[in-house]
Design a binder for these strands. Sequence first.
DNA 1: CACGAATATATCGGCTCCCGATATATTCAG
DNA 2: CTGAATATATCGGGAGCCGATATATTCGTG
Lengths: 130, 130
Amino acid sequence: MTQAAFFVLTALADQPRHGYGILREVEELSGGAVQMRVGTLYGVLDRLTADGLIVLDREEVQQGRLRRYYRLTDEGTVALAAEAERLAAGASAAKKRIAEGRRSPRPAPGRTSGTTDGPLAGPGLAGGLA
Amino acid sequence: MTQAAFFVLTALADQPRHGYGILREVEELSGGAVQMRVGTLYGVLDRLTADGLIVLDREEVQQGRLRRYYRLTDEGTVALAAEAERLAAGASAAKKRIAEGRRSPRPAPGRTSGTTDGPLAGPGLAGGLA
DNA sequence: CACGAATATATCGGCTCCCGATATATTCAG
DNA sequence: CTGAATATATCGGGAGCCGATATATTCGTG
């Protein structure tokens, strides 16, 4: 799941939106940090549709302008939730490790020479994203 | 910041590691979910070095095998922390929206209440791996 | 009325980046 | 000796994002 796809799914999570509306919504929900381009959007839309994560909900013509609304499928909602979990877990792991690195910038002070096999990658790190 | 770069920085956040060690560490810290390939690693390493987010810490020869250790720079630590915040915020926003969409699958069109729910940086992420 | 900005769709070339395959070399287990 | 693990690195293919471009209507400004 690419970042652009994630944001499109997020923008569609609460209600169906049309392409241009997705662009504005992504910018808004990210606080202006993410500015997806039109050239990116339609590729993502096609890919997500092909993957069955979104579908064309309806087409409206408002004031002469075509609006093509997309919405999440059940599969898309599940995929978005799973991706959100992965991102949260990754972010949590990174924060935890930054804190660990600050606590001991240099592991095992005092035995820098002659050490054959330090306990690198020891226990305690496995699956620790609780 | 690409996903691969994020995981490399995360693997290096607590202590310096060499390439192959990063590969194993990324797999371990993600609970086996992320399996970065060697072909990906070295490109990321070069890019992160060029960007000043990591540096070559030292080179060791252990049992005839060269080990090239990399470590985070201060800039790299800052960038990783910032990226972790972004990911957590995005994940939080997605979860919130999924809940909203389930509560009212077709809400009233238009947001007459003024959209006071600000951008990201919502509640702290739980980061649970269900 | 003319003009630019905003709305709204879509396409294309270029560039970055990830993956699979491949290559080299040593150590250890069978 | 053979295979697996460790450890480095490169290359080609393909996926995906961005900037530019195109078309068309509405609205505000001059």
